[in-house]
Amino acid sequence: MADKIPPVQLSKSQFNLVGRSVVTLDDVSAPQISYLLRKARYISDHLPEVSQAAAGKILATLFYEPSTRTRLSFETAMLRLGGHVIGFAGAQNASVSKGESIADTLKTVANYADVVAIRHPKEGAALVASKSVDIPVINAGDGGHMHPTQTLADLATLQSRFSRITDLTIGLCGDLTFGRTVHSLIETLCRFGNVKFVLISPKELKMPQYVLDRIKASQSCTYEEVTDLTAVIGDLDALYMTRVQKERFFNEDDYLRLRDTYILDAAKLKLAKPTMAVLHPLPRVNEIATEVDSDPRAAYFEQVKNGMLMRMALMSSVLGVKLPGFAEDDTKEVRA
């Protein structure tokens, strides 16, 4: 099937992300997202060619809370572009433990690095960081607020599985109240249109009204809310599973009760289309049985790789480094 990435028809300045911070995906236009998807696909096919594209550039990963997966993804992305990495993981190791503000830490680090990836438990921390310095700051997760590169990974996975991110029926299952990844994914897909969302959750963890309003505001997207996964799984092109996150609950009993509501196993997967893709932002607890991992429909480890590729695409774009052989203009791509 021919790839159906929405065409990029932009002047050079319009897809120019050089020097730009990405705090939310609102900072990136829909055509720029299409451009990043195309760039990530190019990188996937040309890893040796791009391996020195960012030589001499330095990424600072400022991780004020642990997130091994995201940090390693950013760091690997930079290393695979030929750049270097500095940073810290865990605020106890940083000058923040001495009371330094985010702004001061950033102003210091900006003297060392060319791009920053920041993760912080406080919502809005990445915006504070981006306002403090002139170098690009990429939000690697600010509390329960935004995690734009996760959404880019999700989009890249849909793109790689279906060769499109429109004209799909996508089920989102689990914690739809606190799950920032599903909110961000829906909002971004609504910018492209023609998606039917099937929202599968217990009534305690339903999708917030403002996200439903966003779908309603879209010309071509629709949604339905259901509580039974097995009743709808056969209709889905993609199923996005989420973890019920313990850290979002104040009450342990509520967490334990809701955690086991939906578990995707081989029996449920038998009801699904043979081409359905199962996505998950990871880490999982028990919401996807390990027996599903070997099913070709399991796309969640592929999603991890796509996350790295999209971070490579994004960082090379904000740094303004050229990828050998990659045509910024869609029509001029050189196949190696």
Binding site: K122, G124, L127
Partner: peptide
């Protein structure tokens, strides 16, 4: 008023 907001902890913001 959000206790998880960065404005609750960052100085001079």
């Amino acid at each position: 008023a959000n206790p998880r907001c960065v404005t609750s902890s960052e100085r001079d913001i």
